[in-house]
Nucleic acid binder design. Structure first.
Lengths: 142, 142
DNA sequence: ATATAATTGCAACATTGTTGCAAATTTTTT
DNA sequence: AAAAAATTTGCAACAATGTTGCAATTATAT
């Protein structure tokens, strides 16, 4: 896959083994990944510190975005849309499954605009819905 | 204040020094409190573990609710409305100020309902807006 | 191919959160 | 009001998560 190298170069990042592998994980992921997931999925290939720093770099470059969770575990997912350096606009809703603890990006659900009190200026909006996801609902019915 | 004892008793909790003090903090707070805030505000009167357990208990009893934050720090605030044991309904928007890192409950802003994909069942919705709060905006203009 | 720049891994540390258990406190019972 | 029962607390010890400085390695530019 040359795609991966391209994404990194486009963000002016050196192409290294760790960045390639971690980026691949995000491209393949169906749900958001926590630091710990990445550690396991890469199977001790990289130092914990490297993973922290890679995630941080990716967020700064607008490649991935962090998602606030209720259970106090930060997760990250690819920015599918127009996220650039620094400023990150996350217009879609996130869904956290209480059962399988997977986090999904509901790309098709747009967060509605909110009218804040005078003096408050909004820069970013996050919307997080928790409940039971489809595959968990299906397996329950069995 | 008898109010505090009442709140605790209504939730079938023993009235202890730590619970009273921590609950008082929440009643007086204008913004959401993190574990660390409470530790500082109570000035080493209580063990860290006690604070963790107290917060957990309060959440379970529906006295406070936890708020997911982007910066990976869980914060808690009083449940002003109809929150009961276990099930917690958080209908209002939270605002996180990037400048002073305070978290505010925007009680007057109700989270709109969202139509999820088939199979997904929502139990709780969180909406978190980040930006600059009023007092930070005012002090910037000076 | 070499020089320069950036990234990695290691070590060491700080912070945050969890668990078991004995001592202390609160509530209930007598 | 005192004793028994139940709950809560603090301590110790540990696990997980996140951060920083620095030398060694790897990637990029010359």
């Amino acid at each position: 896959m040359e795609e991966i190298d391209d994404i990194l170069k486009r963000s002016q990042l050196s192409v290294t083994e760790s960045r390639k592998q971690i980026l691949t994980l995000f491209l393949d992921a169906t749900s958001a990944l926590a630091h710990n997931d990445i550690e396991k999925l890469t199977g001790n290939d990289f130092d914990r510190v490297t993973i922290y720093r890679t995630l941080q770099t990716f967020v700064e470059k607008g490649i991935i975005h962090s998602i606030p969770a209720i259970d106090n575990s930060v997760r990250y997912a690819l920015c599918r849309h127009e996220c650039s350096d620094g400023q990150h606009q996350d217009k879609h809703v996130h869904f956290f499954c209480d059962s399988c603890t997977n986090m999904f990006c509901m790309d098709e659900l747009t967060i509605p605009e909110m009218q804040l009190q005078k003096g408050f200026v909004a820069k970013q909006t996050n919307m997080l819905i928790s409940g039971i996801c489809r595959s968990c609902n299906i397996s329950r019915k069995r």
